[in-house]
Amino acid sequence: MNSRGLVVRNLTAHLFTKRGCARAVDGISFAIPPRKTLGLVGESGSGKSMACMALMRLLPKPAGQIVDGEVWLDGVDLLKLSEREMQEIRGRRIAMILQDPTSSLNPVLKIGYQVGEPVRQHENVRGGPLRTRVVELMRQVQIAAPEDRINAYPHQLSGGMRQRVVGAAALACKPQLLIADEPTTSLDVTVQMHYLSLLQELQQQQQFGMLFITHDIHLVPSICDAVAVMYAGRIVEQGEVDAVFKRPAHPYTRALLRAAPRLDEAMESLESIPGELPSLTELGPGCRFAARCSKASQVCSDAYPPDTGLEHDHRVNCWLYGQPA
């Protein structure tokens, strides 16, 4: 594998629980070229957070295990590295922003200490130079008066500011890839808008690739180049944002796009998807969406549909497109 950026192939991670094996991430493949942003969309329980935990090798132990697959970052398979080597990757080459800034920050440590932590860890910078670097990082994420704020504790900042501090720590060592797992879900809409435009500005300056995980498909076009839609552990459709949003192919993607009310048009009724997500411990051989799909036929519950190419990189897993051979 010589391609640059992140390439994930057939990543499979299962959770072995008392109630059986949950196939949380079941053979997903995607690629993020350098400087590009991929949106990973799915509802709760679709496996999107488990997927990023798996590729960071941070699955909850001992239940979570990577069963199969490859995760290549600039030609290195992360799944083959030792734990020590992986530690060098985390925070330095791949960084993460999680949903809730209150739980990602340690409440008893000062903001400045926490923003500087990756720098201390990976680059062994201390004292005055570290302080200068931290102030600079905080200025970058538009924290006013950073010289004073480095001595503040997380509870003294607002939610939006805390999430910007988390961003500053994540970008401290100039990673090649940023994983943002629902970074704005806990923020108010106007703050969310500000945070997303800040992320994009920083991406322009620092040229990192981004895996942007969200449950809100309507956020995707404003920040992503490509999108992958996940349902019950599998990616059912992926492609360039333009193609997927203008010509959605999978019935689930179509339904997702039409299920949310819109601000710019009056709607008579919303397209709702009947039923609920299937249990991940009791999946049959067929398409996981079949039970809720209006276009389902017999073949859908008998066999999983093949990965079918539509145009350019637009791919879909649905029997409407891939005919049984």
């Binding site: 942003t37 607002s158 939610g159 939006g160 500011m161 108010d188 809409v189 106007t190 703050v191 969310q192 808008m193 500000h194 435009s197 994009q200 309507h218 076009p221 404003s222 920040i223 992503c224 180049d225 944002v241 819109r262 601000l263 710019d264």
Partner: peptide, 22 residues
């Protein structure tokens, strides 16, 4: 309203004239 309207990447949607974000 501006925050809730769908937008495409690169399209200017954010009003920078709004100062402090919170």
């Amino acid at each position: 309203r501006a925050a809730a309207l769908p937008r495409w990447k690169g399209q200017p949607g954010v009003q920078h004239s709004y100062r402090a974000a919170e």
